[in-house]
Design a protein around this nucleic acid. Structure first.
Lengths: 177, 177
DNA sequence: GATAATTGTTATGGACTATATCAAATATCG
DNA sequence: CGATATTTGATATAGTCCATAACAATTATC
């Protein structure tokens, strides 16, 4: 497994910092005027990780605009589909979502008829979660959109092999750091 | 540059889902009882990226507990050190922080005497940013902590080469996705 | 059968993010 | 020059996400 070196961009990003320098006679401090040096920042794992995460979520939302699914909602649908019949606590905690915060998320999915809460006959405290037919259909379309417009984007950027290596490393960090 | 395959863990994570199944006679739905299947979720870039980011920030905060520096504060100090004499707008926008939100962040750093706002003589609207002596000292200690307790942790987890490859790929995503 | 624990829920506060607006200062242009 | 537009730091405010406490209903424990 090989990683091809490619990131040569000097990294610009937020804002548009590219106008013209003013070489004033240094009244006081005033370094000068353009292109800040990121310096050690571009080597900071946390910094670059956060930036990448924001970009990926942003792209995800654009890809899912037609279905109106957020990353969190998508992950819930995926998990419920894979594990039908689990209750809220199980689904939520697996996703790292606190039970109180999961309620509104589910209310949303249920109000859109994508997911349903069913009172369990075994334990009448808990709500069993299942995807509705519409939920299954929407999730199916969502998966295609993700594969087509989202993951594919990453593949052309990094290449299939690097993409897999990346996910592998991130998983390792998420699970063992 | 080569990436060694290492992440073989089946990815567990939140909660402790590893006890024993109960094969109840399926009163209604109730799948069964343990270890949810993540399924395609573990392959979703956004999912794994977010989880990794949270873990890394978490670890960063622990490492910086003695200095009470958040990732955002650390990044500001780093950037101001590397680019002394820039104004708030420049520093903030480079970090992807909106000017209004940058004010409180700076108020904090300034109240702790880590950073100073100096009214520019060239443009009396803007505040030039500089690290105080204490700010420089704290940043220096912070860098050592990060290198010692934070980055090193990543190195033993992935290996030096993979760590560099990872940061390179994340940078690429952050800048070109 | 009394007490403890669990489930879904509500209320609430904190952190982070995003927009509109403002006064002071500067830039632009007729 | 002088009117208008723009920029800078700041405030106010709203929205989202995350975290804790508390509660009623239900179940588990002893």
């Amino acid at each position: 497994m090989t990683v091809s070196k490619t990131a040569e961009k000097s990294s610009e990003k937020a804002g548009d910092a590219t106008k013209g320098r003013k070489d004033a006679p240094e009244g006081h401090g005033q370094g000068s005027a353009e292109a800040l040096q990121l310096g050690e920042l571009s080597e900071q794992l946390g910094y670059v990780l956060k930036r990448a995460q924001l970009k990926v979520f942003e792209n995800f939302l654009r890809c899912m605009a037609s279905l109106q699914l957020t990353p969190a909602q998508f992950s819930v649908l995926l998990l419920v589909e894979k594990n039908p019949g689990r209750n809220q606590t199980e689904i939520a905690s697996t996703l790292g979502i606190l039970r109180p915060n999961f309620v509104a998320l589910l209310d949303n999915l249920e109000s859109r008829d994508l997911c349903a809460r069913i009172r369990s006959t075994n334990d009448r405290r808990s709500h069993i979660l299942v995807l509705t037919d519409k939920g299954k259909a929407v999730l199916s379309r969502a998966k295609k959109l993700v594969a087509t417009k989202h993951e594919s984007r990453l593949n052309e950027l990094l290449g299939q092999a690097n993409r897999e290596a990346l996910i592998e490393m991130l998983s390792k960090i998420a699970n063992e750091f």
